[in-house]
């Protein structure tokens, strides 16, 4: 399968104009036509609500409202906009603790700077071709953090059981607000 980037609408949120220009250039190079930019988290949140992007690329470090906080504001299960929108966190932080924090905030993909065409392209393909289900718990709402099914998982067990208590089979269509 291929991805037709002309069909997708992007929002780039980064306080550094140079980095926004680089990301925009790469997206246009992939074929994207609709790329919107915001210079801070608050403007990004507004553009998210008004322009309904298909994919958001957000920088972690921004003054006032950073990328993690912005992700948290988008990932609200009762949101009337689109809480399932793919979010790619673009950051200079590469430490494992930072990756885990971004993951726990609900980001879809994590992309360390320096950015390359190949790495950004791969993350975008994942968002379009291999979307993960969403998980909602008492303290988390976001893409399934179990990216790979492993028989040797030795980490903390966050879920009590995988036995279904209720299977909701009635609604099979996504409400309009979840479609962007």
């Amino acid at each position: 399968m291929r991805v037709d980037f002309t069909k997708l609408r992007f929002l780039v949120v980064d306080d550094n104009a140079h980095m926004r220009r680089i990301v925009r250039t790469l997206l246009h190079g992939f074929g994207a036509r609709e790329v919107y930019e915001a210079g801070d988290g608050a403007a990004g949140l507004e553009l998210f609500a008004t322009h309904l992007p298909d994919i958001i690329i957000v920088d972690w470090s921004m003054p006032i409202l950073d990328g993690i906080e912005l992700t948290g504001m988008i990932r609200r299960p009762d949101s009337a906009v689109n809480p399932y929108v793919p979010i790619i966190m673009l950051t200079g932080h590469s430490e494992k603790s930072k990756v885990m924090r971004a993951r726990d905030a609900g980001v879809t993909e994590f992309l360390c700077k320096p950015i390359s065409a190949k790495s950004l392209h791969q993350r975008l393909l994942n968002c379009v071709l291999n979307p993960r289900p969403f998980i909602k718990t008492r303290d988390y709402f976001g893409p399934d953090r179990r990216r790979n099914v492993s028989g040797v998982y030795a980490g903390e067990e966050r879920r009590l059981s995988d036995d279904a208590m209720v299977v909701d089979t009635a609604p099979l269509q996504l409400r309009d607000s979840a479609i962007s």
Partner: peptide
């Protein structure tokens, strides 16, 4: 579409993208 478990819900939005 959702599947409800004891302590979590799995939500499977259609792949609109």
């Amino acid at each position: 579409p959702t599947e409800v478990f004891a302590d979590h819900v799995v939500i499977r939005p259609p792949n609109e993208l």
